[in-house]
Amino acid sequence: MMINFILNGQKVVSTAKANERLLDILRTEFACTGVKCGCKEGECGACSVIIDGKLVNSCMVAMGYVESCTVMTIEGYRKTERFAVLDTSYASVSAVQCGFCTPGMVLASECILAKNPNPTEAEIREGISGNLCRCTGYNAIVQAISIAAKEGKGLW
């Protein structure tokens, strides 16, 4: 029996076993290498994806769990208008350094804004608190999300 789900807007079927990690399958079977592996323990957020509108660590998800779900990775999200706003805002404050946390951080940003289009700084920080970044000290990322909230009026 195969596992059916929607990946970045496309119906897909995976031959993976139900106990395999979504992270590994996304990277190998579906070539979504924008999903990064930082720890495989749910502690860093580099592998964040959005399942049914909610941010999750894909290393903590067994393939069987995603049956009939909608999964969005950076590969799908980057085609959206909302991404374009975040892209610009991240660039404007140079919030990307080594880049390894960035795809996960961008998806976390999306989930913050989707829930609350006008978040406070504290809410932004809370929203990315599961996404470790060792380079930036987080200030630029927080600023970028706050700029996106202002610039992306109506999109969220």
Partner: peptide
């Protein structure tokens, strides 16, 4: 508990 992405699961 943990962070949003973990609390979602």
């Amino acid at each position: 508990i943990a962070a949003p992405a973990i609390r979602n699961l």
